[in-house]
Design a protein around this nucleic acid. Sequence first.
DNA 1: TCACGACATCGACGATGGTCAATTCGTCTG
DNA 2: CAGACGAATTGACCATCGTCGATGTCGTGA
Lengths: 128, 128
Amino acid sequence: MHVSVDVLPSPPAAVACGAPLVRRALTAGEAADLARVLKAIADPARLRLLSMVAAHAGGEACVCDLTEPLGLSQPTVSHHLKVLVDAGLLRREKRGVWAYYALVPGALDAVAGVLSTTAAPGGDPSSC
Amino acid sequence: MHVSVDVLPSPPAAVACGAPLVRRALTAGEAADLARVLKAIADPARLRLLSMVAAHAGGEACVCDLTEPLGLSQPTVSHHLKVLVDAGLLRREKRGVWAYYALVPGALDAVAGVLSTTAAPGGDPSSC
DNA sequence: TCACGACATCGACGATGGTCAATTCGTCTG
DNA sequence: CAGACGAATTGACCATCGTCGATGTCGTGA
């Protein structure tokens, strides 16, 4: 028994491409994938973290830069950052004692593209 | 006693405009507003509902059109639709015995615009 | 080697959310 | 009016989530 299905927390998710939401009815699987990424973003603390990381000098920030302005404990901030990394929205790089977080380049735009009811703006030709 | 603070579930939310997420750090209030709308979208059943309503003939659908393909009970579908209406993403119109739901025109694009790291595409000049 | 600082993980608690069965509310029709 | 039908509301149950304090881990410097 126990074949251990190995249901990994999922690879970075990727969101799928194009703007399928309003074009055709989503399948249960597509909806689950999209919801997983959106649930990661749909939290005030995590939205502020994304925003603070993006607006920080150099496009990256360490936990010590984020804890105090956010008004949450350090373990809580670490938890939220992990959720965002697991969702494929942030990238974590450890340098010495500090851990630096930065936006994953196309991630937020991919989500925006799926939600948009018009054609994608810049038109990222790498995917699809 | 009981002045009844009347903390309304919030007006349609509106999300704010522009693409402030990656430009500057969000305030706690802005993050809370955005999170409220995103939480409404961040559910597989509700994503499929938005998608099915948008893809349906005439851009609108009644509950009876949605219950069966979604595989959820009628009360649950009604509950999800109410969440989407309260978030300002769907519009409800009752005609006779049936209740028809349709997308609120700019709502999804507004959310997409906030998440996007580039300038808004079509450029909806009505707001801001 | 030891102490300290930055960060991650663990365990627990209260709050929120998704779902359904049962009921209620409106509206049309016989 | 009474019945039927579509939809909304209620109440309850279980799962998931956000938060914290305590603890563990790893790299740095005295």
